[in-house]
Amino acid sequence: MKTKDLVYIALFAAIVVALGLFPAIELPFSKVPITAQSLGVMLAGSILGWRRGGLALLVFVLLVAVGFPVLPGGRGGMGIFFLPSGGFVLSWPLAALVVGYLTERLWARYNLAVALVPNLVGGVLVVYAIGLPFMAAVANISLGQAFTIMWAFVPGDVAKCVLAALAAVAVRRTHPLLAPVATTSGPSRSGTR
């Protein structure tokens, strides 16, 4: 990896931290306060690609683990991972990786509509696919019950997908960091450029 790749990894880890500092927004159609950090997961994947994006979120999770209060409200430390909601934070590196992988696959015909796909699959599906079973296990509840608790966050997550897609498409125009991939070549070659 080049110096620049490492700097981008640190930059996006820091952007995810910074997004947690913005005040939580309440969407008009659901009364749940949402924070912008999972937006950073989608941005990291769709701007940096699978490798750098996944590593950026891994660095973020490490920041939490070694004891920096980088989650909203100044929370942090290893205790976070033992809360029922801990699986959501733990899912972020994989989520960013999936967003990045799909983005690289779709890079040649990337536009706003296309950009939604990686965000929804990686940034929402993957996050819930890890977060909900984790919650069910820690809190000793069923998956259905876990979903009942969390479904109110889904509209906010979808809104974040749109916002991330808008940003990623605009960044691609002026500051593209991924190389166009021929459909036959694997993402491992494009992600490191």
């Binding site: 490492l6 700097v7 990894i9 640190a10 820091a14 660095v59 490490l62 920041l63 920096f68």
Partner: peptide
């Protein structure tokens, strides 16, 4: 590289703010 990346990330946070 872990320590380096964590240090650089911490440096970036105030710059981004």
């Amino acid at each position: 590289r872990i320590a380096f990346l964590i240090g650089l990330t911490l440096r970036f946070i105030p710059l981004i703010r």
